[in-house]
Simulated scan of single mutants.
Amino acid sequence: MFTVGERDRLRERLLARAEADDSVVGAAFTGSYAVDDQDRWSDTDLVLAVRGALAPTLERWTGWLYDDLGARHHWDLPVGAAVVRVFLLPGWLEIDLTFTPEGEFGPRGPQWRTVFGTPRPLEPFAPPDADTLIGLLWHHALHARVCVERARRWQAEHWISALRDHVIALACLRLGHPAAYAKGAHLLPADLSTALEATLVRSLDAAELLRALSATVGVVTAELERFRPGLAARLAPMLAELTFTPPGECR
């Protein structure tokens, strides 16, 4: 694994290249490093404001990362007009380079540290939609039970685990914690964390899958009661059917 010194030297090289690139008119760190919350394992998140078309700058930087820094792989995550190109370097150094048009260079959240350039005021990223999350909860619970009935046990495990992920996101949303990628999960109350432990699937035995589903539905129901009591009153009896209907009688 990389050392802190290797990561720091890499950041210096990235900034030096950004300052020497005529098409790059702004640079900012995001993520934990931007707010002095990094630790030994933090990766590097750097936003580059690009004047003109993104593609030539993207390809030029990509070639440099492979030829000079020994990149092993990369993949893209489009975000509006910007492209986040995620690189893997030797020693498991990860670099998330966002190439964004000059007019969209600016913070969309609190994790931002401008190095150079002029950031623009931008709308923050929208949090996850609560109604979508709630819809995914009942959808995943239903499909988990159906997969148990069909003896598609790996798929049942998939749905139960995804159901857990979404109820964690909903709880984080309710409490004002980061809701994406379980980033706020460690901030959840101890009683909720303890209840979530019981949702882990321990084997692919049908009885175990139903036990884990029942535990997960219990957490979902409790969270709905905190978040939307009226909706919980409508959904709770139906969710209970998924856990108490005898095997082979799921409707």
Rank of each mutant, 00 (worst) to 15 (best):
G91M: 14
S23P: 00
W159Q: 09
D129R: 15
V4T: 12
G135N: 06
A20S: 15
F116K: 08
F99D: 07
V220I: 04
L192E: 13
R17L: 12
D21G: 03
R150M: 02
V50C: 02
R228A: 09
M1W: 13
L65C: 10
A169H: 05
W75R: 13
Q155W: 12
G117D: 12
S214V: 00
T57H: 11
G135H: 02
G248D: 12
H166F: 10
R153C: 01
R202P: 00
L242N: 14
G91N: 14
R7H: 03
T114S: 07
K183Q: 04
A182Y: 07
A162N: 09
F227I: 15
Q155I: 03
C172R: 04
L93K: 10
A18Y: 07
P90Y: 03
P56G: 04
V35G: 02
E208I: 04
T118H: 14
W61E: 14
V220D: 11
D129A: 08
A190G: 02
R51D: 09
R120W: 10
L200F: 06
D36G: 00
A212T: 05
E102Q: 01
L133D: 09
L77K: 11
I134H: 11
G248M: 07
R202A: 06
V201D: 08
D39E: 08
E12P: 00
H140P: 00
D39A: 09
G26I: 00
P119L: 12
P189F: 15
E12T: 09
P107R: 09
A195I: 07
H74V: 02
L137V: 02
E208R: 06
T3I: 10
D67E: 15
W41F: 11
W64F: 08
A82S: 12
V79E: 15
L69W: 14
V201N: 05
W41I: 03
A232Q: 09
D39H: 14
R174G: 00
A195H: 09
V50M: 07
V24R: 02
E149Y: 01
L192T: 10
S23A: 14
V219L: 11
A126E: 15
R251D: 12
R211G: 03
L10T: 04
I168E: 04
E249Q: 13
L15H: 05
A236T: 12
A169C: 05
L213Q: 13
E6K: 11
H158F: 13
W64K: 12
V220E: 05
T216G: 01
G117P: 01
L122T: 04
H186Y: 14
